[in-house]
Design a binder for these strands. Structure first.
Lengths: 151, 151
DNA sequence: GTAATTATCTTAGCCACTAAGATACTTAAT
DNA sequence: ATTAAGTATCTTAGTGGCTAAGATAATTAC
């Protein structure tokens, strides 16, 4: 067992997380977001339309905070409120993917190019290894997050 | 070239980042941190002691915000202020790694166990592939962050 | 048809952030 | 040495997003 390798990898995965947080924040600032809005905007790109309540439980924010969040996004034309036909209490938040992309893409462009090149430098086998790691690691983090939040 | 694999991997790496942010936040809440302090606490574990000014440029916070940040950490005995001998204007912030660890470790314990097992399930070759990916990806993200922040 | 529930919004109060300027120390110039 | 300029941190006033609690509006259960 290569303990040093494991230790090094653990450290790297932590550093990877921190570094991505920092990049994420730098992008947010550049995009003109105050505070943490960029983080929540990502949920829309990932999951698509959702109700205010879903966003609240997804983000852990109170419904009041979500109201404000959507207000800010709506003002910037990044999302649109729509009442659900089936249940008119519900507010469906429809992301304007085009506008969101137009805002974020230029800021991520260079990163995308570089990381594309990086990926291309690996063989298919290697990429599958990395993929497998990501899939499992995401699972573990999601489990951990759920446990921390729900009790 | 396996384009689907590349696309999938790109998506996964993004999801990995978001998921780690969410876990990070869940830990923060559980540890009793208001807002984003946990994120900045990580800098100390990574980089060790630094001056207030370094922390400011590292985090992108104003010096005023850093003063408040250190006040909160100091009150919780997670860091200690010390005037630099060479230049008494400078305030060196010494992390109390022991206390920080004692606070965070229990919350990360299960995650550490699980991700340890995950890593152990890969061969040494595979781990080296993952390591190589991490190292390069971190480089790229750091470059991107620097460019976004410094102009 | 009334009560209970659910989903979102509103309000008051709090706290961390920025911007600007104050304080304290250091370095450079004469 | 003295003065000026520069640097590092802290302080203060004002802003804005967050929570908690309650209001509003729609739905479901009895």
């Amino acid at each position: 067992m290569d303990k040093d390798l494991l230790k090094q990898l653990r450290k790297l995965s932590q550093q990877y997380a921190y570094t991505s947080i920092q990049m994420h924040e730098a992008v947010a600032r550049k995009a003109g977001f105050s505070g943490t809005d960029h983080k929540y905007l990502g949920f829309f790109l990932q999951k698509g339309a959702m109700t205010a309540g879903e966003l609240s439980s997804l983000t852990g924010l109170t419904t009041g905070a979500v109201t404000g969040l959507i207000d800010r996004f709506e003002k910037k034309k990044l999302v649109k409120r729509q009442f659900a036909a089936a249940d008119r209490r519900k507010v469906i938040i429809e992301p304007n993917t085009k506008n969101i992309m137009a805002l974020l893409e230029p800021l991520y462009k260079e990163y995308r190019n570089k990381s594309g090149k990086l990926m291309a430098s690996f063989s298919v086998e290697e990429l599958k290894t990395i993929e497998a790691y990501f899939v499992k690691a995401i699972e573990i983090m999601t489990e951990t997050t759920d446990k921390l939040n729900n009790k």
